[in-house]
Design a protein around this nucleic acid. Structure first.
Lengths: 346, 346
DNA sequence: TTTTAGCACTCATCAAGGAAGAGTGCTAAT
DNA sequence: ATTAGCACTCTTCCTTGATGAGTGCTAAAA
């Protein structure tokens, strides 16, 4: 595909992203400063259609981009942005102040990240809490709160605090609980909770002779984790305004998917197995029932410790350049936050 | 208004709740076994319209109920249900089993309550966590997690666990933290956290001479609470399917309101200041931007300790009898749960 | 006095038709 | 390779007229 065709395709895509209306050859001919007649554009469009990059809602309508075209466009956009000198975020210097002023809890930071994504993309912003399985343990507390219940408080190095109540027929006294907690911390601090679980039983059994089998069971139960972490959503109401969701059944389907936090977490988790930006367009989301959407997601955390992910859900004609930049910016900021602000001992 | 008019009005309301279409005089005449002609019905309808109970979308359409009519209908329904012998929920005996099997945390119970409301009403179900201000303190733990940060864990008698990280320029050692926590528990256990805050400073200052002013500040900060509690939502996607929300701007507005958890909490909180069922219809929700909706809400908890609330949001032509019963059922179940299952020491 | 039948009237809905306009594909000329 | 021209296709919009649901009013019946 030569560069002229590319320019025409780009123009159609960008126009369509803007207007959501099929684009005709005359409009392109005028818009583009290639001084080509509409007829020539038509020939090119026919070629692009044959290549599966454009399609027509009906015979005498203009063209609209296919998922494939968006895929091409995204590739191009990403390449372009990578080339650009990565200008350091000028606000970065003020991060410390901002965070100190506004945030105490990781949860707030995440909700705010989602809100920021929403504000700058007019779509639905997502921010996922750290993956439970790879979160690194920092602190364990076991607190007996009744005859049969123990409150488990786990603090991870990213600053996430998880608590859960576990029940037993009979639970040890506080002293023993403290002992168990201490052993857990001594052995496992700094390790991923997923790893811990694998080797937990042996370690405990081998090294903690002083404890009863009962206590070991408690320790094991304390480190069981929810399969999914938390999901923070923002701006789901924005989806209503897009004409592609004017079909109510379609809209309802999308909302059903967004509402199921577990599924949403799983989707984002699968999407962001490796560092950096990941984009799924239209039909590529079939598995998650979001065929009419595009999902853009990226990770946050340091290179060797990918904590969680953030993302944006919108129509397939989402403004990719803008969203990609917004996500990258948020990802950097979040990574900074968990690296500097919320780190164990700053 | 005589009983014949009432029967006709009821019929129109129920029909309209079912179909969402304006109801004509002929339809009523057929439906109702009063063997009245359509003309008579028309006269009655004209009266009801004059009374502000019915209105017409346009001159030659059937009638639809006004908010006022729903208000009348709700009053009647509530009275009727109150008369009925309150049959004890036959499932109540199996609550213990169910809860033991499925729930550990109050959060799960609440989410499930919201889900149940959604399932039985096809609307949007809400369940609010206990009001922070009236939640009764059961346990306080202060855990130093870095040079400058203290993790506060509050356990309330309803089984809710709250944690927050607070920062200081310099924080005391763990021993002192334990001491502070102990003092807090000794003085305030069983009291509402709202009350505590009022008398906190004096009590601490007066009784805890041994502690430094710094420690007192920590104690005070530890018991600061978020203004709003948690909100659990279920089935918001259901709203898409109602023809009254086919206007996208309207739908978007509703979703915006539902998305703002803080505002939602405040609304429900205001609505459920007293025990029992509260219903707001249409325009009565203007303050919260939900003019096109009805909100039904009830409290849970015991008579002298109203913990939180649950509710349902739907269109004004929501199926009131069904929803009222569902809410009452869920309210009883939740109250049972926080009373029996999650109580301090069962 | 209440109820009903009858009738004129209003208005939404639907189908059919026609004009306008946007856009295409093809062909022949440049 | 590009372009102008032209026929053709569809959608969109407007009009028209028919249909039908529903009303309000009036006068007669109960």
């Amino acid at each position: 595909m030569d560069s002229r065709n590319q320019r025409i395709l780009d123009c159609i895509i960008e126009q369509y992203i803007d207007t959501a209306e099929p684009i005709g050859s005359r409009a392109i001919s005028k818009q583009l400063d290639l001084s080509l007649s509409a007829a020539t554009i038509r020939n090119v469009m026919a070629d692009l259609t044959e290549m599966g990059l454009l399609c027509q809602p009906h015979t005498s309508a203009g063209r609209i981009p296919t998922d494939l075209a968006y895929r091409y466009y995204v590739q191009k956009t990403v390449a372009l942005l990578a080339q650009q000198p990565q200008k350091v975020d000028p606000q970065e210097a003020s991060y410390t102040d901002e965070f100190a002023r506004r945030y105490q809890r990781l949860e707030d930071v995440l909700q705010d990240a989602a809100d920021e994504l929403t504000a700058s993309t007019h779509c639905t912003g997502l921010a996922l809490g750290p993956r439970p399985s790879t979160s690194k343990l920092k602190r364990v507390e076991l607190i007996g709160i009744s005859q049969t219940q123990v409150l488990v408080v786990l603090v991870t190095q990213a600053g996430l605090v998880k608590n859960r109540i576990i029940s037993f027929r009979e639970c040890p006294n506080q002293e023993d609980l403290n002992k168990i907690a201490q052993i857990l911390v001594d052995h496992f601090v700094g390790l991923g909770i997923g790893e811990i679980q694998e080797s937990l039983l042996e370690t405990l059994a081998a090294e903690a002779q002083e404890l009863s089998a009962h206590a070991i069971r408690i320790g094991k139960k304390a480190l069981e984790l929810d399969a999914t972490g938390e999901v923070f959503i923002s701006g789901s109401a924005n989806l209503c305004q897009y004409p592609e969701f004017s079909d109510h059944l379609n809209l309802q389907k999308v909302y059903q998917r967004i509402e199921d936090k577990g599924q949403l977490y799983q989707m984002m988790d699968e999407l962001t197995q490796t560092e950096g930006l990941h984009i799924q367009i239209g039909d590529e989301n079939q598995k998650f029932g979001l065929q009419s959407c595009s999902v853009l997601a990226s990770t946050y955390g340091s290179h060797d410790n990918l904590l969680g992910s953030i993302g944006v859900i919108g129509p397939t004609r989402i403004n990719y350049p803008r969203v990609i930049q917004a996500i990258n910016r948020s990802s950097r900021k979040l990574s900074w936050a968990v690296g500097h602000f919320l780190s164990p001992d700053r």
